[in-house]
Amino acid sequence: MTPDLRPVRVDTGSSDEEGRLVFVADRLVAVLVQLSDQHGEMAGHWFLEHGFGGVGGPKRPTFASLQAAEHWICHRLGEE
Rank of each mutant, 00 (worst) to 15 (best):
E49P: 08
L48F: 10
L5H: 02
G57R: 08
K59R: 15
F63P: 01
E17C: 13
M42L: 15
H71V: 14
A68I: 03
Q38K: 14
P58G: 10
S65Y: 03
V29F: 00
D26Y: 07
G44M: 03
G44D: 09
Q67R: 12
E18M: 09
K59G: 07
F47D: 07
D11M: 11
M42S: 12
L21P: 00
S65C: 04
S14E: 07
A25L: 11
H39A: 02
G54I: 02
R9P: 08
L48A: 08
E49D: 08
L21T: 06
H39N: 01
V31Q: 05
E70L: 04
E17Q: 14
Q67A: 15
H45R: 12
M1Q: 12
R27V: 13
F63H: 06
A69F: 09
P61L: 08
G19I: 11
E41H: 12
V10P: 10
S36L: 09
D16W: 00
M42E: 15
G51A: 01
P61C: 04
D37H: 11
M42W: 10
V31L: 14
C74F: 04
G53H: 07
F63C: 05
L32G: 01
E18I: 13
A69M: 02
A25D: 14
L35V: 01
R6M: 04
S36W: 06
L32D: 06
Q38I: 06
G19D: 12
S15N: 13
C74D: 12
V33H: 02
S65E: 03
V29D: 08
D4M: 13
D4S: 11
V24E: 03
V55P: 02
E79N: 06
C74G: 09
C74W: 03
A64V: 08
Q38L: 13
L48N: 02
V55A: 02
L28I: 06
D11I: 15
L5T: 06
S15K: 13
H71A: 11
G19R: 01
A68V: 07
S14G: 12
G57C: 04
F23I: 01
W46K: 01
E70H: 01
Q34H: 12
A43W: 09
H71I: 10
D37C: 14
I73N: 05
E17Y: 09
G13S: 09
D4V: 09
A64T: 11
K59I: 14
A30E: 01
E49Q: 12
V22D: 10
E79L: 15
G40S: 07
P61S: 10
F63W: 07
T12Q: 00
K59H: 12
W72F: 13
L28F: 10
L21K: 13
G56P: 06
H71W: 11
D37K: 14
R76W: 05
W46H: 00
R6N: 10
E18C: 05
G44H: 11
V55M: 08
G57K: 04
T62Y: 03
E18P: 00
M42D: 15
H45K: 14
G44A: 05
L28W: 07
S36M: 10
D4R: 14
R76N: 12
R9H: 14
R20F: 05
D11W: 03
G57D: 10
Q38F: 08
S14P: 09
G40T: 01
E41A: 11
G78Q: 08
R76P: 00
L5A: 11
V29R: 06
